[in-house]
Write a protein that binds this DNA or RNA. Structure first.
Lengths: 357, 357
DNA sequence: GATGGCATTGAAAACGATTACATAATTGCT
DNA sequence: AGCAATTATGTAATCGTTTTCAATGCCATC
């Protein structure tokens, strides 16, 4: 078969002139039809003899498949979209890594899009995904977009992450926000804090759900939480905390609705010169690297970030197998990691729960 | 022209059956040829009259371009590859965001690949990039791959980031590592530290260059630095520090060759119970969010991360315009941010530079 | 009033693969 | 032995665009 490759060396010289070597050139070099080459490459029914010839020809010609052509003809893009607000948010960074690992493992490409919580950008990227004829999309939408999202309209399945849509509409994998918020509140109460406030992102359902969870948990104890809604950025959070700390009545503890807000909170508290947790306790979501090391260590809810990404990808694949099955929502539990930022409240009135200690 | 769209409503009903609406359907709806539609969409020479008709037909049919077909025919993928070791490294996270912003701004897609510093994965992804017929690639290679990298062989231009290749071969945008290392060393010396050690990543040229920079700067003062090379991960760094601190002779200050190593260092130091900076000063690279907030604040070299990504993309575009121009290397300066982790060395022998204070 | 140039349009080829269909060869079964 | 079923292979159509090429019409110029 080596002879086969050599006898038509005119072909090889011809290759030097051609821009790229295609399946046609391989076929000629192997002395078979293009269909056979395609089948040999794609795992179709081909005799061992010809398959060997084709493989040799591929190696000899340096053939590289053209994925665009393959996608066009086969109508399979083997591509998924991952649309998040900002990859620099460590939560999304970790999720994206999991999604990409899972995607590449099944031979799929990932297109990453940053929307900056901007519904216009979201719409633009969704449209791009349609033009790419993506196999599916994993999406963390703003509240605005989540409401008017119709997967059947889009032409590809969607799995929501971190943020849920109206129930029953779309597959989603989210944190149990009510449970997690409750964990935080119970912990703070047990540590002796009573005047508990919170800063919540105002663009996502997640911020709203965590807020609702905090309110509910507080009410169970006959307490009220003071909540403020802000853009989910460190900058907005820092400013909000600085403002808050200049007001006459101040909280004993603050809860942040995600890692970026928590970061801003800590900066704001430091800038205002309050000591943590003596003057202000801090707690929040997302066990980012730095939370362990900052100040006295920050108490957080750890999300199973890698698991969320992997699960989202798994759900997408399942949905592709069975497009008809009913939408399901996977709810994962967060884990409370208590650290110094919520140490026992010293100034707590000795009367109440503090006695239990 | 509305009439034109209505009179052939048989066409519209036909659309309901077809899977997707293509340029052909738009042409029929608009009463023009496919070539005209293509030109109208692509900004070719088309009369205003027909262009209006086409636009109306596009809206009426809900046409969406098929990017795979477009790529195949036009031979322009409008796609670039971004190959890094791990997107979860905050340095690469930030760079990737900049690259994507710049790419989408000029109508390009980005394919992100994580290699985990594994040359095999690097080879695999480079091959994938060839199959995708990418326009170009932005790449942070391991030392092993950087050496045997031949851009002419690959078929697309490459811009290296963070890590350089043999000079004159490839475009690159890197930090001035020698200068940055010198800034750190001079700072530590000025603060009274003498026994300075370092932990450097062993997979990239960057680790080697920063090591060389530290050694050179120390030599200028007649001092020696003790360096150790490790896998550039927090885990490896933490272990290395713990080991180091159990040895008889210990450093007064440690330098980390990147953000992940610095993170591990701090963890190791905490685990060993040494206080910072009293017993051990810490400094490193990458001004990640947490470095300001951890312990006494960590002294670091801040890299212009967003700038690096943007510049890399710009260089790639320039290279595409002029494939013949000679390779250039853009060297950016880092900025020293001094924080508590390298406060004045108390136990410094009063004799030397400490007197200057 | 023919002629050349320019701008606009359409018909058809091409991009590089997959796949439907036809064909030939082999096998298994009655 | 004969016929159906199966397997391996080749030919040609196809995916949805862009682009080449030829044709048309119009204007200005000689």
């Amino acid at each position: 078969m080596v002879l086969d490759l050599m006898h038509d060396h005119d072909n090889l010289t011809e290759n030097d002139c051609k821009m790229t070597v295609g399946i046609k050139d391989v076929a000629r070099a192997a002395g078979v039809s293009v269909a056979t080459v395609s089948r040999a490459l794609g795992g179709g029914p081909v005799s061992d003899e010809l398959r060997k010839k084709v493989e040799a020809a591929v190696a000899a010609t340096g053939y590289l498949p053209n994925l665009s052509a393959r996608r066009l003809r086969s109508q399979h893009s083997h591509t998924i979209g991952l649309i998040v607000s900002d990859i620099r948010n460590p939560f999304f960074t970790a999720v994206s890594r999991a999604v990409e690992d899972a995607a590449y493992a099944v031979g799929m490409r990932v297109i990453l899009c940053n929307t900056d919580e901007n519904p216009q950008k979201e719409a633009m990227y969704l449209r791009l995904m349609q033009e790419e004829r993506v196999t599916g999309v994993i999406f963390a939408p703003t509240r605005a977009t989540a409401q008017k999202l119709d997967p059947h309209q889009l032409g590809f399945p969607v799995v929501l992450i971190d943020r849920a849509a109206p129930p029953g509409q779309t597959d989603a994998v989210v944190l149990d926000n009510a449970e997690a918020a409750s964990l935080l509140v119970e912990h703070l109460l047990a540590q002796g804090y009573r005047r508990i406030g919170g800063l919540f992102g105002n663009t996502s359902t997640t911020g709203a759900e965590r807020h609702a969870g905090v309110v509910a948990a507080m009410q169970q104890h006959g307490l009220q939480a003071e909540a403020r809604f802000i853009a989910p950025t460190p900058e907005a959070a820092e400013q909000a905390v600085r403002d808050w700390l200049h007001e006459p009545v101040q909280p004993e503890a603050l809860i942040a609705s995600n890692g970026l807000v928590l970061l801003g909170m800590l900066r704001g508290a430091r800038a205002a010169g309050v000591s943590i947790p003596a003057q202000l306790a801090l707690a929040g979501f997302d066990n980012d690297n730095w939370t362990e090391l900052a100040g006295p260590g920050l108490t957080v809810i750890e999300q199973p970030v890698y698991d969320i990404g992997r699960t989202a990808m798994k759900m997408l694949l399942e949905r592709l197998e069975d497009p008809a099955r009913s939408a399901r929502k996977v709810v994962l539990s967060g884990k409370l990691i208590a650290r110094g930022s919520t140490a026992q409240h010293m100034a707590a009135p000795a009367g109440q729960d503090a006695a239990q200690h």
